[in-house]
């Protein structure tokens, strides 16, 4: 539940955004980033459905790789 997942914004409607991570789409709430300039294509760190921070595509990529390693069957 504390796990932050990087997601890319696909479209924005008010405080709601469709975001994608590795082909999976979810609704994400942008309320906590209301004071930031957020545009489609940005990467955000998502916790329990809420974006907490903007991040770079490179940081998103590194985190996805980590999650792939941790989630892989051992």
């Amino acid at each position: 539940m504390c796990l932050g997942i990087p997601m890319q914004i696909i479209n924005i409607q008010g405080y709601n955004a469709q975001c994608e991570a590795k082909g999976i789409r979810r609704e994400v709430n942008l309320f906590l980033l209301q004071d930031e300039a957020i545009i489609v294509g940005d990467f955000v760190l998502v916790h329990v459905g809420y974006a907490l921070q903007k991040m770079t595509s490179q940081e998103a990529q590194t985190t996805w790789e980590l999650l792939d390693q941790l989630m892989a069957p051992t």
Partner: peptide
């Protein structure tokens, strides 16, 4: 923790 409480506050 704070990471969950902030979304709840939102």
């Amino acid at each position: 923790f704070e990471t969950t409480m902030a979304p709840l506050a939102a």
